[in-house]
Design a protein around this nucleic acid. Structure first.
Lengths: 224, 224
DNA sequence: CAATACATTAAACGCATGTTCAGGCTGCTG
DNA sequence: CAGCAGCCTGAACATGCGTTTAATGTATTG
């Protein structure tokens, strides 16, 4: 336990952090040898410390999850747009973590689902605040809307990454910037000015699906 | 050439079709041995016919691309909503192809980019028709909007697939149905009734970024 | 019927992978 | 100093991969 208390500069931690970087850069099929070389150790030592590649992956998952919740807590405590922007400016600092999350989102797995749910909760809370402030419209199903918005944004970001950075070393700062440049305007436009001028589609679907099968996620339908 | 003229029931074609299924079900890391077993032949024969796994993959790409353009041509010729719905009902028929495309979208590659551009073109044309008919609002940048809408929908579908069907054998009919059930209502709602009641964000962004890059679409913002 | 070309297979090759093993090195403890 | 325990390495092992090779069967053709 002495090594753990001494901080994070143990060889174990160095391997772990290096592994996060490698996983982010080259995907989860990166070899143990590459990870070992990146940390300046032998492949055997990686296994000696973590038991197996799968367990190393798990440890990376929990570590990344920890970083995320830490940042999230900070953000919630500050809860200011300025801090949020500052975070986005420092996004390069979290490059490996962001890359790791994106790789997880591509590959599936527990961390990906957890992260998605975390984002959904954030978005739902954020939207609720906007609704109360009068800047955001209320929804028939706030939870579903939050899931939809999260899924669209995250999925779009994923797609952009895979399509335009097929190389093994994507720069996530650049990816993010490209993505914002390409989609920010149409997104804001679509969310501010209705895309569909004809209400028929929505009304039809609401009459059809809303009457027959209500969803069980019972936060109730939002009213004005 | 006699074998090619006899139709598609050659061993080569059987292997190819089986490979598309395998790639769709298990991803592109599926082994040649699995593909061979699926087609009821030896691994060596697969290589003998296609030269290498990479070339087999290419052939699958072009084949899938062919199926897509064929279906697309039919759809354009018919161009009726009824036919479109019929196609969606028969979507299970195209399960392997759809799965293959989704895998491509996850892994990147030429087919993925091609398919995305194809979809963007379709969406842009479709939206233009709607704008002329008065059912769809005009956009400051129709091309960017088409890209955004396509990216959101496709990305969301991808994300849903990877998150909820982490198993090796996803049923794409079911995936599609789940996706529609989860996201159709909030999507229609968001596109029909503006999400953001405050125009500040949009106006700010337009003033900031729109000053540099002008819009060429410009039939006006088309609101009341 | 003999010859030729093709379809097909079983076995093996070379390689990269994750993992194991036996031992060497270092630092602490008696 | 002797000994022990941990960190660490280099080499080896087992496995699965894509691919090659030699040989077998099977038609078609002269």
């Amino acid at each position: 336990m002495s090594s753990a208390s001494r901080g994070d500069l143990t060889t174990r931690a160095r391997i772990r952090d290096g592994a996060v970087e490698c996983f982010a850069r080259e995907g989860f099929s990166v070899s143990v040898r590459t990870i070992a070389e990146h940390a300046g150790v032998s492949p055997g030592l990686v296994i000696h410390h973590f038991g197996s590649k799968a367990r190393l992956r798990e440890e990376c998952d929990t570590h990344v999850r920890g970083v995320i919740t830490e940042v999230k807590t900070q953000t919630v405590e500050e809860a200011s747009g300025a801090f949020m922007l500052q975070q986005m400016a420092e996004i390069e600092q979290y490059g490996p973590v962001l890359g790791y999350v994106l790789r997880s989102l591509q590959s599936g797995g527990v961390l990906a689902a957890d992260f998605f749910e975390l984002m959904v909760e954030d978005v739902e809370r954020f939207m609720a605040v906007g609704v109360e402030a009068g800047t955001v419209a209320s929804s028939r199903d706030p939870a579903a809307r939050a899931r939809y918005l999260t899924s669209s944004a995250l999925g779009s970001l994923m797609l952009h990454t895979t399509l335009h950075h097929t190389g093994a070393e994507p720069d996530f700062g650049q990816v993010m910037q490209e993505w914002i440049e390409a989609y920010m305007l149409p997104a804001l436009e679509s969310y501010t000015e209705p895309v569909l001028l004809d209400r028929t589609l929505l009304d039809t679907y609401v009459a059809h699906a809303g009457g027959g099968a209500g969803d069980e996620g019972g936060t109730g339908t939002g009213d004005d």
